[in-house]
Computed example of a mutant assay.
Amino acid sequence: MLAAMSFRFGQMVLVMFGISVVAFLIFFATPGADPSARIAGRNASQETLVQVRHDFGLDRPLPVQYGLMMNRLFVSRDLTSFVNRGQRVIPAVTAAIPVTLSLVGGAAVLWVLGGLIVGVIAGATRGTFIDRALMILSLIGVSIPVFWLGEVANLLTQSRWHDTWPFSWVPPLGYIPLTKDPWGWFKALVIPWFTLATLYVGLYGRVLRASLIEMMQEDFIRTARAKGIGERR
């Protein structure tokens, strides 16, 4: 058990290292990616660019730049944003963690439950009107861009229909901490939960339906039917 956990942990470290290297190369080594130009601002002189590269270590080899960034990120923890000067990265990420976990956690519960319900009902009613209707709705959910659906949800719940009784309970945009107001936390996130879960309910529902239909054609299912076991069981 300990060996397996150590092996998995080593794999996780390697994957995270690979992701960090790829992300670093995308923003620092691809053609046209010059962090010093973003730091110095538009129409900066060459002297300013040279000085900025020297101050931030951007004139050094790429492996050295990567090591310096990792040191500022994990050791000294004083890495600042290259876009918003003076903004520290670690506090910004730490402040966003509760919001992200709240959004993803609630949406995950909805899309797992919704995907199970859609997939099981569609698989059990294969070829019927219910199956076709669920698959059409799932296809629509998969095809709708999440950012567009979020904008429409905000338009309806925060602007046009906010004063109507179906959406009068929706609080203004913003995050309410769970420890401060649990009910307010729930009300502020329920619309984003459904917005984010719409895509994955359709995706997981279609995949589960296909898996159930494939499994219902296996030999052990036909044997169970031949022995008189009902479809519900």
Rank of each mutant, 00 (worst) to 15 (best):
A4M: 09
M5S: 11
M5Y: 15
V13I: 15
V13L: 15
L14G: 03
L14R: 14
V15K: 06
S20M: 13
A23D: 08
A23K: 01
L25I: 13
I26C: 09
I26H: 04
F28W: 10
A29Q: 07
P31H: 05
A33R: 08
A37M: 12
R38N: 08
R38M: 15
I39T: 07
G41Q: 05
R42K: 12
R42P: 08
N43A: 11
T48E: 14
V52F: 08
V52H: 00
R53V: 09
G57F: 11
L58V: 01
R60S: 09
R60I: 02
P61A: 05
P63C: 07
P63T: 07
Y66P: 06
G67I: 10
L68H: 05
L68G: 13
M69R: 10
M69G: 01
M70V: 02
M70W: 06
N71A: 07
L73R: 05
S76P: 03
R77L: 12
R77C: 05
L79P: 08
V83A: 10
V83Q: 15
V83G: 03
Q87R: 14
R88I: 06
V89N: 09
V89W: 00
I90H: 05
I90S: 07
P91M: 09
V93Y: 12
T94W: 05
A95F: 03
A96E: 10
I97R: 09
I97W: 12
P98Y: 04
V99C: 05
L101P: 10
S102P: 06
L103I: 14
V104D: 10
V104Q: 10
G105M: 12
G105S: 14
L110R: 02
V112M: 09
L113C: 13
L116T: 03
I117N: 00
V118K: 03
G119T: 06
I121L: 14
I121N: 00
I121E: 01
G123M: 12
A124N: 04
A124V: 06
A124S: 11
T125P: 02
T125N: 13
R126K: 13
F129N: 04
I130L: 15
L134A: 13
L139A: 13
G141S: 13
S143R: 11
F147A: 13
F147C: 07
L149Y: 08
G150V: 04
E151R: 09
V152A: 15
V152M: 15
N154S: 13
T157Q: 03
Q158C: 01
S159L: 11
R160N: 04
W161V: 00
D163S: 03
D163Q: 04
T164R: 01
F167I: 08
S168Y: 02
S168H: 11
W169T: 04
V170Y: 07
I176P: 04
I176C: 07
P177S: 11
P177D: 06
L178T: 03
P182V: 02
W183A: 12
W183M: 14
W185N: 15
K187E: 12
P192C: 07
W193E: 06
A197S: 15
A197Q: 10
T198S: 12
Y200R: 09
Y200C: 01
L203G: 10
Y204M: 08
Y204Q: 03
R206P: 02
R209A: 06
S211M: 14
Q217A: 14
D219K: 03
I221W: 08
I221K: 10
R222L: 14
R225K: 13
K227T: 01
I229Y: 12
I229A: 07
G230L: 01
E231L: 08
R232P: 04
